[in-house]
Design a protein around this nucleic acid. Structure first.
Length: 799
DNA sequence: CGCAGGCGGGG
DNA sequence: GTGTACGCCTGCG
């Protein structure tokens, strides 16, 4: 018989000395099922050295066989390695874990040149070989079997014949999602599972049910037991949390162990959640997704707390929800009135989490489907690993052997061009962007580790020779990266064309849009991936050639623009700021398309744009009246909110009204408010990330000092944490006066002069300084700027 | 005042 | 654990 099912996850287990591939899925009729494939066996490839005979090597490998997990097959297969045809030996054994042992033994043989694909997890091996697409529908030839008692599913099947994806990625209509959030009570410092109870667990389901499990005073046994029971009862396919991979699940697991409970929440009895690849927490038969992984990909949001991200995405307004700082939990928990507030806080978090799931899951599911990584892994995997799985899938499909990672020292190379901007205010400027510049360069010049000519005769008549660096690439045959990228770009065009056939608010449109986004991200990652030392397809010269061709490409366009009399104001990597003269812009775009084989498009038009001498910094007024600020302090996360506000406002006044006096007066009013202690404390917090352990810092930076103070209070701060501090009055260096923000309760303690001299004035002067405004002017009392126009201010020169 | 260490946002 | 280019902070000599 045949069964059609939506693939959730792929795992495996060894039972009776035999490996079983386990596929967790949902059938068309909504039954949760497992499919087992007992026929598949682990294997890897061996490539013989040039001199060695393949037959002799095969005999030697067979002789390595060990009865514990015998080598059951060694056979020659035709493959390609970096594009070249090779005769490889496929070595098959029985127990997945024994691949490691045979791999090492094979490496020890003198006739062996390469041992390949011996580090791929058995379940992923199966997925690769069968082209499985997680979060997509499949059909398989199966035989139904009784459901083994350990599986909590409706039906079970053995795969007996083919198994393949159908291409349909529309999720089942009754897909069950459960969002949860835990609250931990700690009297001081960071929570410790051996000491601090889980006082609340809130859950919300996609069916609309909401529940809260609460501790009796400090006894949290029933909280965890109730939560476990709820999960088994509701039986979700997807479990979502926020930072759940690194907080909620590890904490619950530790706490359960201490309380003598089993966190038996999976679809396989006895299988507790466990931390696995890329740091994700795996729950048997369910997809556990940490939504923080996706929030981390939003650069516009600097502080990734749940409330901030939910507010940004329009899921829940910060102003309309309850917020409680965790240092205040004990106070709230003890007081019956306040406890209600804490419960509401937890519920708001759970609802925000479910809201984020609605925003992120459709994209995540498409990404899982395209890369081949199960949904629970794909979020936790880095950009490089996501692309790598996609490449591994493509390589397998094309009969290409997957290269090993090689331990290497990173070698730096030259990057893109950044033009010196023409300083001042410019009117009516068009920003031109290359479409997928780096992917198109890789396609045009056939760049990749399989097409690069190392040694050998290179000529510019027969090869593509990279400018400046001289790396040489074959024109034929088409390389692996070129093939993959062409397919990706074509797929994206097709998806975008398909989108036009559906209403913007339809589920079809949304699905196609999420899919084209996932495709775009993969294509854009290819260049950076080749320059990553940890990549299987690492190729430093390739990455270096891409940036070299990139530099020449944009330089050619700049030269052409100039020759046409079109003034270029600025440019960076793949973008150009030019005078907005439509006929000339059109002519330039035609030149780029017809003469150079690239596409360039007007990305936006600025009514007015302002540059100083600095690169990578500008502010522009868009045609719809919005102000774009790029690179300046206002858009950086490591400046106090108040400095950002001042810079934003100053920029807006300058660009929209060209009124310097008004801007000066505005800055003065803020300075005066600061001096009077009337600026809210939260606008004075400066956030900085710890990039290493606190003790490893050589210099005593303010955020490092604040982190040390936190640690003395028992609050753990680790690499990657953002430390928020406020500079307070007192003697000593700035760093000594950097206090963790939650310890500062009185605005009068704030060092106003620090914020004036080091935050507000510099941020304002970055813009106003260009017009000759000085810091003394900004510090005078408000309202004394006089009535002069922009043109009374002379441009400050370097001389 | 210049340099080093540190950091983050942007193309 | 995708890449490089860039500007500005604080600390320090």
């Amino acid at each position: 018989m045949e069964v059609e099912f939506y693939l959730l996850d792929v795992t495996y287990e060894v039972s009776g000395g035999e490996p079983h591939v386990i596929l967790w899925g949902i059938t068309r009729s909504g039954e949760r099922v497992v499919l087992r494939d007992r026929r598949f066996r682990p294997y890897f490839y061996v490539v013989a050295s040039d001199k060695a005979s393949v037959e002799a090597l095969a005999r030697k490998i067979r002789a390595l066989s060990d009865p514990e997990s015998p080598i059951v097959d060694v056979r020659p297969v035709d493959k390609r390695f970096f594009g070249k045809p090779v005769k490889a030996l496929r070595v098959t054994t029985v127990i997945p874990e024994s691949v490691r042992k045979y791999r090492e033994k094979a490496r020890g043989l003198s006739e062996v040149a390469e041992v390949l694909e011996a580090d791929i997890r058995f379940s992923m091996r199966y997925a690769l070989d069968n082209g499985l697409e997680p979060c997509g529908w499949h059909v398989a030839e199966v035989a139904e079997t009784p459901v083994p008692s350990r599986y909590r599913v409706a039906r079970a099947f053995d795969v007996t014949g083919f198994i393949k994806p159908t291409g349909d990625t529309r999720p089942p209509s009754d897909l069950r999602v459960l969002a949860f959030d835990i609250e931990v009570l700690t009297e001081s410092g960071s929570p410790h599972p051996e000491r601090d109870p889980v006082i609340i667990i809130g859950v919300k389901t996609s069916s609309g049910e909401t529940r809260q499990f609460t501790a009796e005073d400090l006894d949290d046994k029933k909280v965890i037991a109730g939560f476990t029971e709820f999960i088994l009862d509701y039986d979700p396919d997807i479990v979502v949390g926020y930072n759940s991979n690194h907080f909620d699940w590890p904490y619950l697991l530790e706490r359960s162990k201490i309380l003598g409970l089993k966190l038996d929440v999976g679809r396989r009895s006895g299988g507790e959640p466990s931390t696995s690849t890329y740091g994700h927490v795996s729950i048997p038969g369910r997809l556990n997704v940490d939504l923080l992984n996706y929030a981390e990909e939003i650069p516009e949001v600097k502080l990734k707390s749940l409330d901030v991200v939910a507010d940004y995405l329009g899921v829940m307004k910060r102003s309309e929800r309850v917020l409680v700082d965790y240092v205040d939990f004990p106070k709230y928990w003890r007081d019956p009135e306040k406890r209600r507030v804490l419960l509401r806080y937890n519920l708001d978090d759970v609802e925000s989490t479910m809201g984020l799931a609605g925003k992120f899951l459709p994209f995540a599911m498409q990404l899982a489907n395209i890369t081949g990584l199960p949904l629970d892994q794909v979020g936790a995997a880095s950009v490089g690993h996501r692309l790598e799985w996609f490449l591994m899938k493509e390589a397998t499909r094309r009969g290409e052997l997957i290269p090993n990672r090689v331990e290497k020292e990173a070698e730096p190379y030259k990057g893109a061009v950044v033009l010196q901007p023409l300083p001042g205010i410019h009117e009516n400027i068009a920003v031109l962007d290359f479409t997928s510049m780096y992917p198109n360069i890789m396609i045009k010049y056939n760049i990749g580790p399989d097409t690069i000519l190392r040694g050998g005769e290179c000529s510019s008549e027969e090869h593509n020779v990279a400018p400046e660096v001289g790396h040489c690439f074959l024109r034929e045959p088409q390389g692996f990266f070129k093939g993959v990228l062409q397919a990706l770009l074509a797929l994206r065009r097709q998806l975008r064309a398909e989108m036009k056939k559906h209403p913007v608010d339809s589920p079809e449109y949304r699905l196609l849009d999420e899919r084209q986004r996932a495709v775009k991200i993969l294509a854009n990652a290819a260049y950076g991936y080749m320059g990553w030392v940890g990549a299987r397809w690492y190729c430093r010269e390739c990455a270096e050639a891409v940036t070299a061709w990139g530099r020449r490409t944009i330089s050619t366009v700049i030269e052409h623009a100039k020759s046409m009399g079109l003034k270029v104001i600025y440019g960076d990597t793949d973008s150009l700021f030019v005078e907005n003269i439509p006929e000339k812009v059109k002519e330039l775009a035609d030149f780029v398309e017809k003469e150079m084989g690239f596409e360039i498009k007007v990305d936006k038009v600025y009514r007015r744009v302002f540059f100083t001498e600095a690169k990578k910094r500008y502010a522009g007024l868009l045609e719809d009246g919005r102000v774009d600020i790029v690179g300046f302090e206002a858009v950086r996360g490591d400046w106090a909110e108040i400095a950002k506000e001042v810079q934003e406002k100053v920029t807006e006044i300058l660009l929209s009204e060209k009124n310097i006096e008004k801007a000066i007066d505005y800055v003065r009013s803020i300075v005066s408010e600061l001096n009077q202690g009337r600026i809210p404390l939260e606008k004075l917090v400066i956030w900085k990330t710890l990039t290493k352990q606190v003790d490893e810092y050589e210099a005593e930076a303010p955020h490092v000092n604040a982190a040390k103070k936190l640690r003395r209070m028992g609050i753990m701060v680790e690499v990657g944490d953002k430390v928020g501090y406020i500079v307070v009055k007192g003697p000593g260096k700035i760093s000594e006066r950097a206090e963790p923000y939650m310890f500062v309760k009185d605005p009068r303690l704030v060092d106003a002069s620090y914020y004036i001299d080091h935050q507000i004035i510099p941020a304002a002067l970055r813009i106003l300084g260009y017009f000759g405004v000085t810091d003394t002017q900004l510090k005078k009392a408000a309202g004394s700027a006089g009535r002069r126009s922009l043109f009374d201010y002379t441009r400050k020169t370097q001389g």
